[in-house]
Design a protein around this nucleic acid. Structure first.
Length: 560
DNA sequence: CTTCCTTTGAAGCGC
DNA sequence: GCGCTTCAAAGGAAG
């Protein structure tokens, strides 16, 4: 067991010394000698994401130092310009003093969607992982990271934490546990939702009750747990799912039966003293039978649309709960089980056959939908769009569209073909998200559009997917991915045919609205970039796929 | 030194 | 399928 002081909350924790779990308390920070190789790549549910910095060509002395041992083969081409990236374009890593970030490192969450769109090719010199067809973790960096599970579908990796020095004080351990740890075959069960809640609440209750008796504390926490709403509990069920997934990833052959009966063998002698304690348990069990299990309940989400109780199994989410699923920035594009592809996906990629557009369709038709208060965009299409106008107007005229430092605008823009109004609209939508969110006080409107369309933007299905099931997968495109993508490639992602699947009505409505908004733009620094040299320039829908075009593709073309 | 207590949820086991 | 048991965490109490 390793005593770790969380660099996020300063809480001291005990961790198994062989592993540091993925959690907010896993915030050991990026090792100093690794900082030069990673860059911030956005956030996923408030959790900062980091990705590897693609190494520059060694000839440029202004560029960061090469990777530790042997430069990886990935090139550092700017998808915008086709030129090698200058390290000055990369966001600087936060200073070491800001070691408050949870170290969530993923090599797929931040891969621009266009890199998936042409599997097997080598556009702009981008080499892909030979098995997963994505830009993978550089080979010589793999030794430094290990999978720690998934965070809302996104495979998460963390830096390998070296074994603690022997002089670190070992917390009090029971002998039996010591024996268990000596026996490396003993693998503990992953904690369930309540255990996670218990772990979180124990220090608080301990302070409130001014006692260290676990039995009393657990009783109080158990009572509080039962008083939590389903939404409040959902947070812990999500965490438990992540932990379970991480556990399954690390121990694919393990099951709970391996521990069954190994810890201790005792005969439960329920006396009268425990009868009262078992009473609420029976009630809980009865309630469990009567109620929807927490795992099947709607997880808490600021953007979820509540229509009816889920009728499908949890692992086959409908668009109804997609806003929650949006947390999956980018799903795994490959379900192969390898060292780079966690063996389990909590929320597997949504196949088209499971897409239920009823919810989003109802949005387009303004059908009444029961809403959570945080989802104004989906409450009423017209009103929501009007609210978006209010949100976007100041944005469109703001100085950020003239800032050359923005990856989406500025000088680079003029070097790039920007023919697609959809792209323009979406680039507007996503332009400088950091700036926007910094200035955005109310998390409504603009952000809601993002969250609504984010998870359901269609992309070209992957060949392996097609060969397996002919079901396209929907790859959410994060604004951070957009930042790193060229317009034409993004356009590929947005409008490429996806096995005749209709584009999400939410997306269509959004694109339609954005077009109308752009049409009303007065000529200006930003608007001039909307005038393409050729109406078709940059619109790179493959002609060969014309016959298999989703209905809304023609709609989008009519937007010209 | 080992097990119990105490909680909920997940999973195994036996019928 | 149902009911019961075990185990995840925690640390003091009890045997």
């Amino acid at each position: 067991m390793l005593i770790v002081q969380c660099s996020w909350c300063q809480e001291r924790m005990k961790k198994p010394d062989h592993l540091v779990y993925k959690s907010k308390h896993n915030a050991l920070g990026i090792p100093d000698n690794m900082r030069q190789y990673v860059r911030p790549a956005g956030e996923l549910h408030d959790v900062p994401l980091w990705d590897f910095v693609t190494p520059p060509p060694p000839s440029n002395p202004q560029l960061p130092p090469p990777f530790p041992t042997g430069a990886p083969t990935q090139s550092a081409l700017d998808p915008w310009t086709g030129r090698f990236l200058s390290h000055t374009l990369l966001e600087p890593a936060p200073p070491v003093s800001q070691q408050l970030v949870p170290l969530i490192l993923t090599n797929t969450a931040t891969v621009p969607a266009h890199l998936y769109s042409q599997p097997g090719t080598d556009r702009q010199g981008q080499l892909r992982h030979p098995e997963h067809n994505v830009v993978g973790i550089p080979d010589n960096m793999r030794q430094y990271v290990h999978p720690v599970g998934e965070l809302h579908d996104v495979p998460v990796r963390d830096f390998v934490v070296p074994a603690p020095p022997s002089n670190i004080s070992t917390p009090k351990k029971r002998k039996c546990e010591a024996r268990q740890y000596e026996d490396r075959l003993y693998i503990k069960k992953p904690p369930n939702a309540f255990m996670l809640y218990l772990k979180e609440q124990r220090p608080k209750v301990m302070a409130e009750l001014n006692t260290t008796g676990s039995a009393a504390i657990n009783a109080v926490v158990g009572k509080r747990w039962r008083s939590l709403s389903k939404d409040q509990q959902a947070k812990y069920f999500d965490q438990a799912e992540t932990e379970s997934c991480r556990h399954a990833t690390e121990h694919p052959d393990w099951s709970t039966k391996e521990n069954y009966g190994k810890k201790r063998k005792r005969t439960r002698n329920r006396t009268s003293s425990t009868a009262s304690a078992s009473e609420p348990k029976q009630e809980a069990q009865q309630a469990k039978r009567l109620c929807v299990t927490p795992a099947q309940t709607q997880p808490s989400s600021s953007y979820s649309v509540v229509k009816e109780p889920l009728k499908q199994p949890q692992r086959q989410p409908t668009v109804t709960n997609l806003p929650h699923q949006q947390s999956a920035c980018v799903q795994l594009q490959n379900t192969q089980t390898t060292a780079d592809a966690p063996v389990c996906q909590v929320n597997p990629v949504l196949p088209a056959s499971h897409m239920d557009f009823s919810a989003s369709a109802s949005l387009a038709s303004s059908a009444p939908v029961q809403l959570q208060k945080e989802a104004p965009f989906v409450s009423d299409t017209n009103e929501a769009l009007l609210s978006v106008v209010e949100q976007l107007d100041p944005l469109l005229t703001s100085e950020q569209f003239q800032q050359p430092s923005s990856p989406l605008i500025g000088p680079q823009l003029s070097q790039t073909s920007l023919a697609s109004p959809v792209y323009c609209a979406l680039s507007t939508l996503y332009a400088s998200p950091d700036t926007f969110f910094k200035n955005q006080k109310e998390p409504i409107g603009f952000a809601d559009i993002q969250h609504d369309i984010w998870p359901i933007l269609p992309v070209t299905p992957q060949p392996d997917t097609l060969s397996c099931s002919n079901t396209p997968k929907y790859s959410p495109i994060s604004p951070f991915s957009l930042e790193n993508s060229s317009p034409s490639k993004l356009l590929d992602s947005f409008v490429a045919p996806t096995e005749c699947q209709p584009m999400s009505p939410v997306f269509s409505e959004t694109a339609k609205y954005m077009m109308s908004l752009l049409n009303d733009l007065e000529p200006g620094p930003f608007a001039q970039h909307l005038q393409p040299s050729s109406p078709q320039a940059g619109w790179s829908s493959p002609e060969s796929d014309q016959s298999c075009r989703p209905p809304n593709h023609s709609f989008l073309q009519t937007l010209y």
